[in-house]
Each structure stands twice: as C-alpha cells, then as structure tokens.
Design a protein around this nucleic acid. Sequence first.
RNA 1: GGGGCCGUGGUCCAGUUUGGUCUAAGAUGCGCGGCUCGGGCCCGCGAGGUCCCCGGUUCGAAUCCGGGCGGCCCCA
Length: 482
Amino acid sequence: MKFGLRGLMMQKDEDFTGWFERVILEAQIVDDRYPVKGFTVYMGWGYRIARAIARMLEERLEEEGHQPVQFPVVIPEDAFMREAEHIEGFAASVFWITHAGDTELDRRLLLRPTSETAIYPLFKLWIRSHADLPLRVHQTCNVYRYETKATKPLYRGREFLWNEAHTAHRDYEDAERQVRKGVEIYRYVYDRLGLSYLILRRPDFDKFAGADYSVAFDTWNPDGKVNQIGTVHQLGENFAKAFELEYEDEKGEHRLASTTCYGMGIGRVIAAIIAHHGDDHGLILPPAVAPIQVIIIPIPFKGYEESVKRYAREVEAALKEGGIRVAVDDDDRLRPGEKYYKWEMYGVPLRAEVGPTEVNERTVTLVRRDTFQRSKATLEELKERVEDLLERVYQSLRERSWRRLEREVVWAENLDELKAHIEERRIVKVNWCGDPHCAFRIKDEVAGEVRGTAWDGGEEAKGPCIICGGEAKHVAIVARTF
RNA sequence: GGGGCCGUGGUCCAGUUUGGUCUAAGAUGCGCGGCUCGGGCCCGCGAGGUCCCCGGUUCGAAUCCGGGCGGCCCCA
C-alpha cells in the first residue's frame, strides 16, 4: 500500500472537525474517550506542550511580579454566594459536593468554576496596608464548569486546565494599569506561539460575571467560530466590596481595593495552535513550545548501521550542547519513511536525516516541517543553521496565521451583507450604535453575535448603525461562536 | 428549546432495509519473526469483540420493538 488510507483522510480544509479529532488522538495530544462527558485526558505529547505553554506564561507573570500560589479546588457555598452578579453568571454551571460517604455535608462545597471566591477571603487576611499592594498571584489549575452546550475536546470541557491571575490594587487607576499589563503579557505568549488574535472589549451583556468590563482575545478557527483564548477583567471594587478587601492608606484611612483577574485556557491555546498551524500531515508546532525541536532520523543502510547510529548520537550531542531540544529516533522497528510521517504528525519543526552520505561528508540533511524544504549543513555550522531554521519556521507560521486572520475579517455595510458573510463563516465588522438591543437584534437575525469592539482604539466608526440607523459609536465584531 | 443522524476488536468501518448463510468480514493498528530500511515496502505467524445498556417479540436478534445511556449534526 503505497498511498496509505491515512493520507487520503487527512483533509484539513475539507473536513476540519474530522481532521482535528484525528490529529489530537494520533499526535497524542488528548484522548477524549474518558468515560465522563466533557472530561478529557491529556496524553504525553499534549501535556508536554501544555506545560511548555503554561511555563512560558508563568515565567512572564512572575517577571511581572505575580507570585505562584495553589488554592484548593473546593469553595464553601457562603464565599461563592457573596457577589451577586458572579453567582448569577456561574450558578447554573457549578458542580456541588453535597455528601461525604453517606453523610450529607451541613455546608455544601463547590468545585471552583474560577477562583475569585476562593482567593478573596485570603486576600482579605493578606491585605492590611497600602504596603501590601499591589498584590499579584497566579495559579495553573483545573476548573470545573457544567457546560450545557456541546462539549468539544480542547475547546470546551467540563474540566479544563488554565492559568488564572488575580491582583489587588490601591485604586481603580492602578487596576487599570494592571489590565493593560495583563493584555501585554498574554500578547507576548500568543506572539511567541505564532497565533493571530483580535483584542476586543466585550459588550456589557457579555462581560465576566461580576466585572466592570472584560477584554478578550478572540481568534479565528477554520469552522468560522471564533475561539476565545484569553480574557482580562477589570473588576473595579465589585469583589472588594463583597469580600471587604480594605487597606489602610498612608493617611491612616481605610479604603477599598480594586481588583483584576485574567485567565488563559491552555486547551484552547493548543486548539488554536493545531487549527492555525496544522496541515494535512498533522501538527506544526511553534519551536518555542515544541517538546522536541529537532528529530534526528538515522538511515541505517546495510553495513552502515553502527556508523550511522554513532554519528546520529554525535549530531544529537552537538545540538544538545547548543541548547536545542533534540532527540534521536533509533527505534529499529520503524522504517525511515514511517518515522517521517510520525514526527510530522507530532509537529516537530525540524527533521535531521543522517545516513551513509552524511556520515561520510560529516553533514546533516535538514528538512523544515512547514515547507518540507531540504538543506544541508556541516557539523560545524549545525547549531547556527538549526537556530536560523527554527526562527524561520516560527516567523512563517506567525505570518501565515496573521494573513489568514486578515482574510477572515470583512466589512458589512448592511444586514444582508452581514448575513452573507456570517453564512460564509467570516468574522465581520459592522457599525454599531452601542445599544444592546441592536446587538440582540443581530443575534436574532444572523447565526453570529456581537463579540465586542476593538480594545485599543482600532478603526473609527463612520456612518449609521447597521440595525437602527442611528449614529454608530463603535465598530463591532460579529462572528459565530462555539 | 425544536428536528435529524449514529453507537460493531485500539482506530476506521462492512453486515441492520428483507431476523437464520454471523462461530461477525475487511482495512489499519498491536505482538513475534524475517527484510536489500533515503517517504507509511514486502513475506509469515499471532493476539484482540459483553455487536452501548436493560427489557420485549421470536424456535432464533448485531439486525425488529420499547426504554435508557452516550456521541455527533442542523435549526431557533
């Protein structure tokens, strides 16, 4: 069988969902066959990527003054019930712990759907004076939400891995600066993953439950539904009031703190990496988070087995010394061709082939995962060449992702155009007066909804609102959602 | 909320319309052995299935009926 069935079935453009499901399983990202709906198992390769993403984010957060913490997964009912809007937003999707063995608990506990109400009771104890502020913490953990809409591996689960940061400040303005900082930190991470995104201020009716306002990173997905990969929230004094986060200022007066929080769903980020960068051969990983950046494939011709193996180890050592994440695939049950397909599925950005020719020349044949372009490097120049190629792979993934986003976003001047574009599964810009009723009308009329308005300025609205014809105050982004 | 489709070894699935030929076929994957190993080669041997669950109809159910569970899609 020269042309395996697998090759024929891999059609990202024809059948994204089918392609995606196969890739996550074959590339050992997650296994969605765990026998509880909405709960997914991370496998080795996927979890290594997840950890790499989390670490990159954690390092950035810690450089920016966030302390790592680990709060309990359970929250007592009375703490959860403190902030009215927050309860309203999350109550329906909360998992409750009501029993221990046969004993009914006299105080129900819930599995955190997000950790504000777990963290603030302790913030209250930790914050005494203005010298304790700003207080910034973050944790990478699982959260639990009983999603009623269709669950989808990596995109929407009832348990999901994320990193959440929580900060407290002396006043609204300082919290405002932190919101900007949060956006900047997330931007840094997405940029290094080569992901394109829109930064939107969510409309009030779609903000985080209990927030003053919410900023979200939305990105394109091949099925036309935008993927929210991160959110940053200005909470103002809402939670500080509910949890009595007071401090004593320089003048000895008691004042309410202002708080912010931001969360990044690791699964959705991985989903975006798969969706943006992948091709019909499988994943293509951005070098920054590829568990293996260079895979060495020995080509063991008869009579050369040992010398090829030895040389492969030499190449590995040279790269390892240069700080490259490298491995040799010396599994002799697989043929070289099979290994090519395997590591392409896994998305390793560079392949190094070493056979008798390379042994004799003391060279390495390098193949880019994204373009399949081949080149040769001598052992001496290897490290520099590999670094250069990894950088090129990264740059080209990133450019491609942004070009696609630019193509996906289109203007609509009227409702018919909007309908047509949403039908084509595009992301659409429209003039909007800012009235929620007009936003709801859009949701009623088309299969998409108002996701928000450009957070940092963006285009100026010109002309009439697409619904009511009144003067537009914003350019709104309308798109399908999960 | 409304409508539709589906559930068979790890994976993809044939078989269901018309019950018996099913002791469930095939591909792929897996294990062992061989091999001339530069893109899934080839040869031999082998393991692997409560046909989603419960109940019913029947001499006989993967197949028909009822209920349940699970998954997917479309529409509002």
